[in-house]
Design a protein around this nucleic acid. Structure first.
Length: 221
DNA sequence: ACATTAAGTGATT
DNA sequence: AATCACTTAATGT
């Protein structure tokens, strides 16, 4: 699907967002170079080992970024959302290497794909692009530091409730469409453990659960 | 009615 | 907190 600037303007407040972020010429270049695609939920966009050809810019929805540990277990790195781009991809662009991450959607998502060849070009040409990339690295770094802190210093129950809150924020919805098994995967735990903790949270009145769904009762927008 | 998948539970490590 | 073995419940065909 060819990228059309007016599409974005009508579908999103992206123009406004971009105007604050990038100079006009860069916005024009982004529009020319990028391809806007609507991705269905649960679509794998890239897997480990593939060559990176495009860089994603999230317009709406979200993108789950994972890597693999030595045993081939999936490891959740972070979620990308509105206006985010993938730091791991940026890293790979300059070295033309293969992807060390996999990424998939968990909800319908719009992404603007930009060929990687523009990355170096824009880095030199636009100061706003440099800031954007740097800022992107920064926030991803902070997110991962927080994740490490979580792993190292907090028990499963805390990790679980944080996970639920983060997801609700990400989805802009306190009603989460998710199973205990999926949660267990993301937290590198087992389904049984999650089920027990979830029951505890329910008894504490924090959540209400149904099949394939959990509502955060205290969730505020 | 039956199969499949999600969630609950007690016991053990 | 993880795993096992089993039960119960919800949902699709």
């Amino acid at each position: 699907m060819a990228f059309n600037f007016s599409d974005i303007v009508t579908n999103n407040d992206l123009l406004e967002r971009f105007q604050n972020l990038f100079e006009k010429e860069l916005i024009d270049e982004i529009c020319n170079a990028g391809e806007l695609r609507k991705i269905a939920e649960y679509t794998e966009l890239i897997s480990i080992g593939e060559t990176i050809t495009h860089m994603p810019l999230i317009i709406s929805g979200s993108l789950k970024v994972m890597t693999e540990d030595k045993n081939g277990e999936e490891l959740l790195l972070y979620y990308l959302e509105l206006g985010d781009t993938c730091a791991m991809t940026l890293k790979c662009c300059s070295s033309l290497s293969k992807s060390v991450i996999s990424a998939m959607t968990e909800e319908p998502t719009e992404i603007l794909f930009i060929p990687v060849k523009y990355m170096d070009l824009w880095m030199v040409k636009y100061q706003s692009w440099r800031s954007f990339v740097l800022e992107s690295y920064n926030s991803r770094m902070n997110e991962m530091l927080e994740a490490i802190d979580n792993l190292a210093f907090h028990n499963m129950e805390e990790r679980l409730s944080k996970y639920l809150r983060n997801r609700a924020k990400l989805m802009q919805n306190g009603k989460l469409k998710i199973t205990h098994l999926q949660i267990a995967h993301d937290l590198n735990s087992s389904r049984v453990v999650i089920s027990r903790l979830m029951k505890k949270l329910e008894e504490e009145g924090v959540i209400k659960q149904y099949r394939n769904r959990v509502d955060l009762l205290e969730f505020l927008f």
